[in-house]
């Protein structure tokens, strides 16, 4: 009987440990991710220096070490204050998307769902989504907001919003950079044609066409992405409304439904950029041929 009592005591003790076990899971979260990121960072810098050497203007060992240290420092600063980095990204977005003007100074006072709603609508408008698409995005967002309590919705919407801002800002930066490059290439094209109207500058034209199509692709892909998001939000809202009409507790199912709407985008949003810039416009330019044409022009006129 004593044995039974001790066994029961052990079972109770093990039972008391269960919540501790859950808490311990916390330690497993994200372990090694920062180290992996730093290792990737160093590998990336090594790669870039190797590339620099190939192109004939190598970074010195000191410069490389400095770059690694600087990048690591920035990374740690950011981990301590991600909100500041987010605000900076919003400031950058305000420059290219005037509809967002002022959001970098007011975002902290807004509800996460409001911030999500305002950002998605402004970005969709900027990327030429039509009125019907905008209205649907607005309506489905509102339907989900109405169906789910803010505290439950805000986590996923916030993670999505951060990823959206990171990726959209990056896309805008790359689009502007290529458009700036276009003006340089256009000038180069004019020079070639001035020297010889028969010059084979088809690869410069290919670059210019590629840059033009990036903007069109960006508009199409962003509109399509928001269309898919609107459909997902609509389906989720409907299914949550249905769950809420019963007496059963569906809190886990509601949580999973919401996370299934937004979580795939944390990774998926970066595919958006890859899709827009899938054609490497620089690769369209035949630098060797252009160099050869320029050299031959010099020889011919001697």
């Amino acid at each position: 009987m004593k044995n039974l009592a001790y066994k029961l005591m052990l079972v109770c003790f093990a039972f008391l440990l269960v919540p501790v076990g859950i808490a311990e899971e916390e330690d497993e979260c994200c372990d090694g991710l920062v180290e992996e990121a730093e290792a990737t960072l160093e590998a990336a810098i090594v790669e870039i220096t190797a590339l620099a050497k190939l192109l004939g203007f190598a970074l010195s060992d000191e410069e490389t070490a400095e770059l690694i240290e600087d990048a690591k420092r920035k990374f740690h600063e950011l981990s301590k204050n991600p909100e500041l980095a987010f605000e900076q990204q919003l400031k950058n977005l305000e420059i290219v998307i005037p509809e967002l003007s002022g959001i970098s100074s007011t975002w902290e006072t807004k509800k996460k769902s409001t911030l999500f709603s305002e950002l998605t609508i402004a970005i969709a408008r900027h990327h030429k989504s039509n009125d019907k698409q905008i209205t649907r995005l607005q309506a489905t967002t509102q339907r989900l907001i109405d169906a789910v309590p803010e505290e439950r919705l805000s986590v996923d919407m916030w993670i999505y919003t951060r990823s959206l801002v990171t990726n959209v800002q990056s896309i805008q930066g790359d689009l502007s950079m290529f458009e700036q490059e276009s003006t340089e290439f256009l000038e180069m094209k004019e020079r070639f044609l001035d020297w010889d109207p028969e010059s084979d500058i088809s690869s410069i034209d290919a670059f210019l066409t590629c840059v033009d199509s990036n903007r069109t692709k960006a508009n199409k892909k962003v509109t399509k992405m928001f269309g898919t998001l609107a459909n997902k939000m609509d389906r989720a809202a409907k299914s949550i409304e249905k769950m809420q009409r019963t007496d059963q507790d569906f809190s886990i199912e509601i949580f999973t439904t919401i996370s299934n709407v937004f979580t795939p985008y944390i990774v998926g949003l970066s595919n958006l950029s890859r899709g827009i810039f899938s054609d490497n416009c620089y690769a369209k330019v035949d630098f060797e041929l252009l160099d050869q044409i320029a050299s031959n022009l010099g020889k011919d006129s001697r």
Binding site: L33, A37, T40, A71, L78, S79, Q89, I266
Partner: peptide, 19 residues
Amino acid sequence: CLERVANLELGLKIIIDEI
């Protein structure tokens, strides 16, 4: 956990852009 991943993504993005 997701917040930390988002920080990580942003951190890497900023570093890549810097380089």
